[in-house]
Amino acid sequence: MADLAALQRQFFDRVTAGVATDGLIASGELSIYANMYASRLYDAIADDYPKLRAALGDGFDAVVAGFLRAHPPSCFTLRDAGLALPLYLRARPQVPPWAAELAALERARVEVFDGPDARPLAQDEVVALDTELPALRLAWIPSSVIVPLTWAVDDLWSALEDGQPALPPAPASRVVLVWRRELEVVHRTLDPDEGQLAASLVAGAPFAEVCEQLGELHGDDAGARAAELLLRWLAASALVAPAAAIP
């Protein structure tokens, strides 16, 4: 296998990293493959991170080039070629500190787009529970991602979506829920108390426990607030039902 392995190594290094070859090619141009490698991966990442590309402007190309050197694609699907970009950006002092969080928000939308299907919990199912409601286990639908933020990149995302200028976001402690509502990928910045509950609904929590957590924040108003949030989540098709949600 040595000859074929050596040939493929030469070819691969030339196409992906520009390393010169020796006695490999009888005819044609390896640069054609090198150009396609670079452009295909760039296009895939640009497709997945359009807001980051807009926000970074000319700096985006250098980010992609550096990312691909640090994280050459290792998965069979182009969908995952940019999977590690948010992580990569966190350790890059030369890019704005909010860039990793904007990338995380965009990546969450990619993950949710073709994530697992699940039937959302319906309001009439909840109403029918009556006195069993406290035991109802609330959990986000499987195609959802919680994105904690320290910068207001949710506002930046919305501004770019609306065609507004990409102004640098301000520091802000927030939690964004990204989920798929039927076939549409949506996200919403959670209220502060809602944001505190978000993590416990990833694994699922009984409604009674949600009320208890809210009690620490709202005292006597916790019941009304819990009902308000439950109705909001039901209307948004954000909770999974019933087999997994009801003990």
């Binding site: 000859d3 691969f12 992906t16 396609m36 895939a44 694609p73 290792s74 998965c75």
Partner: peptide
């Protein structure tokens, strides 16, 4: 072929048409 050493090129790269490649 499109991957080497666990890294994917996301392309359809040609083979050398050798007996070794044929066996593989």
């Amino acid at each position: 072929w499109s991957a080497l050493g666990g890294h994917s090129g996301h392309d359809l790269w040609p083979l050398p048409y050798t007996e070794e490649a044929l066996d593989l």
